[in-house]
């Protein structure tokens, strides 16, 4: 699991939150925003590596 980073801006007053709620749950929530669905990420990578990127042919985003 990824370590908890130092106070990203998406978090509010974590000290206050720790006083009011279970610190273990808080740490779990903070950790979870730096984790992704790795199996899905690996599948997207695998599709991208298919010949000609065929697996992602219809699903590529256009960067506006």
């Amino acid at each position: 699991m990824s370590p908890v980073r130092a106070q990203p801006s998406r978090f509010g007053d974590l000290d206050d939150a720790r006083r009011r709620y279970d610190p273990d749950v808080i740490d779990k929530i903070c950790r979870s925003v730096f984790e992704t669905d790795e199996a899905a990420d690996r599948l997207v990578d695998a599709f991208a590596e298919l010949p000609g990127g065929a697996g992602l042919a219809d699903a590529r985003h256009r960067v506006a």
Partner: peptide, 26 residues
């Protein structure tokens, strides 16, 4: 979601350090 995440991870517009991963587990 994984496709969007892949795109956003490669984008300058996404601030992972402050926002976390795009469409994270959390």
């Amino acid at each position: 979601h994984a496709l969007v995440r892949r795109h956003l991870r490669g984008s300058d517009a996404w601030d992972t350090a402050n926002w976390g991963e795009p469409i994270s587990v959390g």
